[in-house]
Design a protein around this nucleic acid. Structure first.
Length: 722
DNA sequence: GAGCACTGC
């Protein structure tokens, strides 16, 4: 297949930010493409001063002093993440026991940034500079002043302290002042920095809404929002808009509420964009021929290809390897590596190793390389223009993974991956016309593509009662909201007035899991099987505890049968956990039984956290030993809405959901596959050509009525008792 | 007899 390319006109790293309405705007100077190693060894201070953000130190501090909200647009390598928190500390924003908080969407980034900053400041991590992520609090009371954390953790912290008035490293009694003395106010002058806000995770969006709300009560709270170029304007609009009435500006303290955008250049290199001249029919095939073209015509440098999922990636790795084999010398020198989250740790690490001299590394990856992982040495990027995205249908209450076109923002992000070490090239497997006229500017925020049950619970726990009226950066659909309220009501987590019930609702909000799982845990406390149910909840919260992969299917299926329980997958998990525990948590035992050791370690961690929380909220930790009847009852108490009945005359194992009469099937990975018991409850649905139930347990229909009479009242006569 | 983009508490 021949490939025609048309050089594009887009500059992936353009940095002019529009600011019409009177906001201060700093434009960057000339674009430097320097690397720090050019100067050889330099002291940390010198290195810090060489970062692009250093030029803006005074400007940033001035803006944070005078503006409620500052939006920083910082390209890759600008140094904003590591430097700005230090500038704030140096300027006295952490004096008097106050904490400067800086959030990241991902745990790994939190750890990396915190340790880098601690190193630059010459302090031990966990002292002045600390971090908090799930399972790990590396901060020290009275000592830590710079705290890095995931946005999820900050959200959890706000449940105990909704106005963040206690955001300090030691106890201090401060009242929220209506009109307070200067020195009282001083204690409340906090800065919170939300980094990578453009990624628009659910937690970031909730935080943005909450912090905007808090600012009205606490004008002395300062926000720094870091964002990519394209999204900066909408972020600024969000903070500019006063929701109902126009609120008076806080002129008294010389503070302006209008947000301002400050743009800092990065250290990326220019990336030449090439578009396909014709629309591409088959992007796997097109990606393969483009890689071969690059290898044939372009100078040395590694290639990164963005495809959508495991299937596409494995197929193209195969095609490229075949090509290398058949054409021999011409195409040799290629090392082709797949990259997706489902790979084992060892396989993932291969992509970070350097290619031997004279060899070219080709990494074929999912979206994981767009945000989560940074690969060094990439000079060429091939962008299919697609990724797998999650969509939620509130009518059927089902989440689907769909291959969908990416946004222009994503396309720029992908292209930028080619310019980290030297000028690079990006090959887009779509036309320039398509890019300009058919791609959306920004992706759909996660909050508009997800179920809202967890989100509603969190907001309720934060004291936000009018959720439909909440000031979102992007509003979730009314249908999704109503569906969430309905589910939470049926779980008896919300009452008739949509308030959290006591104690169930408040307990569910404390548990960091899906409300149906939390409800199951609470029920298990009353039924006397919380030890078992907490283990099951922990296993359900990791991706999979089985080792899967090509060539070992038969063996791993057989291994699974050794643990299989007649009741279904949940009880099977208990058998695996028991065996793992009895082996002394041995990795050899896992290996022998085709159980994923890393997943089991995570199960242990989650289990410990859940036990701690259970104790705190007053649940009884107790084992039911071998009475699996109560285990099934507890599962039913949380998941009654997922009950299904086998169609009597079905020969292919078709079930129908009680709630919506949806056609569903037991997933082949379940121990109940082909067993087809009459009544089952599933944990989740995956939809491909059919709807498959994953993690299934048999139930007794009378338990359904017992667990949720309110829910099954109507169906009672015509379904359950037939 | 099928297949799971990626985070997070």
């Amino acid at each position: 297949m021949s490939q025609f390319w048309k050089p594009g006109t887009e500059r992936p790293q353009g940095r002019v930010v529009d600011d019409e309405e009177g906001g201060v705007l700093f434009l960057s100077g000339s674009h430097h493409s320097s690397s720090s190693s050019r100067y050889g060894y330099a002291s940390i201070d010198k290195q810090r001063q060489r970062l692009p953000v250093f030029k803006y130190r005074t400007a940033i501090l001035y803006l944070v002093e005078t503006r409620a909200t500052t939006i920083i647009v910082g390209e890759t390598g600008s140094g904003k993440t590591t430097q700005i928190p230090q500038y704030l500390k140096e300027a006295g924003w952490a004096a008097g026991g106050r904490l400067i908080a800086c959030t990241q969407p991902r745990r790994l980034a939190v750890q990396a940034v915190a340790s880098r900053v601690a190193e630059e400041m010459g302090v031990k991590l966990g002292e002045e500079v600390g971090y908090t992520i799930r399972f790990e609090d590396v901060t020290k009371p009275d000592v830590t002043v710079l705290k890095f954390l995931t946005d999820g953790v900050l959200l959890r912290e706000m449940m105990d302290d909704p106005l963040l008035t206690k955001y300090r490293n030691c106890e201090l009694d401060v009242k929220v002042p209506g009109r307070a003395f200067e020195h009282e106010l001083e204690k409340l002058r906090h800065v919170i920095m939300l980094d990578e806000a453009h990624e628009r995770s659910i937690s970031t969006d909730i935080l943005l809404g909450l912090l905007k709300k808090i600012q009205r009560r606490r004008p002395e709270l300062r926000l720094i929002i870091s964002s990519a170029t394209i999204e900066a304007k909408s972020m600024s609009d969000f903070f500019r808009m006063r929701k109902k009435r126009r609120e008076p500006e806080n002129e008294e303290h010389g503070l302006q509420v209008e947000p301002v955008i400050l743009s800092v250049e990065g250290r990326g290199f220019n990336v030449q964009i090439n578009y396909s001249e014709e629309p591409v029919q088959d992007y796997v095939q097109a990606a393969v021929s483009t890689v071969l073209l690059i290898h044939e015509r372009e100078p040395a440098g590694d290639v990164l290809v963005f495809l959508t999922g495991q299937d596409d990636i494995d197929a193209s790795v195969q095609l490229l390897n075949d090509e290398v084999q058949t054409t021999g010398k011409h195409s040799s020198g290629l090392i082709v590596l797949p990259l997706y989250s489902g790979l084992s740790r060892a396989e993932q690490e291969l992509v970070f190793s350097q290619a031997p001299r004279g060899k070219r590394k080709v990494i074929i990856s999912t979206n994981i390389a767009e945000t989560s992982l940074t690969l060094e040495g990439i000079v060429y990027v091939v962008d299919s223009g697609f990724s797998k995205q999650r969509f939620y249908n509130p009518i059927s209450d089902i989440e689907n993974l769909v291959v969908a076109p990416i946004s222009r923002a994503s396309a720029r992000q992908r292209a930028g991956r080619a310019g980290r070490v030297r000028p690079g090239k990006c090959y887009r497997l779509y036309t320039e016309e398509y890019f300009l006229n058919h791609m959306s500017n920004e992706g759909i925020p996660e909050i508009q593509r997800s179920s809202m049950v967890s989100c509603v619970i969190q907001l309720k726990a934060l004291g936000i009662d009018n959720i439909l009226g909440f000031d979102w950066p992007a509003s979730p659909s009314t249908e999704a909201m109503i569906r969430a309220l309905e589910i939470l009501y049926s779980l008896r987590v919300l009452d008739d007035d949509a308030k959290l019930t006591s104690p169930t609702g408040f307990q569910v909000a404390e548990i960091p899991l899906d409300p149906m799982v939390s409800k199951m845990i609470i029920a298990s406390s009353q039924l006397g099987c919380s030890e078992e149910i907490i283990t099951i909840a922990a296993v359900l919260s990791v991706q999979s505890i089985w080792i899967s992969g090509r060539g070992i299917q038969k063996e791993s299926d057989e291994a699974k049968l050794r643990f299989a329980a007649a009741e279904g997958d949940h009880v099977t998990f208990l058998n695996v956990y028991k065996g793992f525990h009895q082996s002394g948590k041995s990795s050899q035992w896992c290996h022998k039984n085709y159980v994923n050791y890393h997943a089991m370690r995570k199960v242990l961690e989650v289990r410990e956290q859940l036990k701690r929380i259970a104790k705190r909220i007053g649940l009884v930790l107790k084992s039911c030993e071998s009475d699996m009847q109560v285990v099934r009852k507890a599962v039913t108490a949380g998941f009654f809405a997922n009950a299904c009945h086998l169609e009597e005359y079905s020969h292919n194992g078709m079930y129908k959901t009680l709630r919506g009469s949806q056609e569903v099937y037991i997933h082949p990975s379940s121990v109940l596959f082909r067993v087809n018991p009459k009544w089952v409850i599933y944990n989740s649905l995956v939809s491909t050509d059919r709807q498959y139930m994953r993690n299934v347990i048999t139930i007794d229909p009378s338990c359904l009525l017992e667990a949720a009479p309110h829910f099954y009242q109507l169906q009672q006569s015509n379904h359950l008792l037939r």
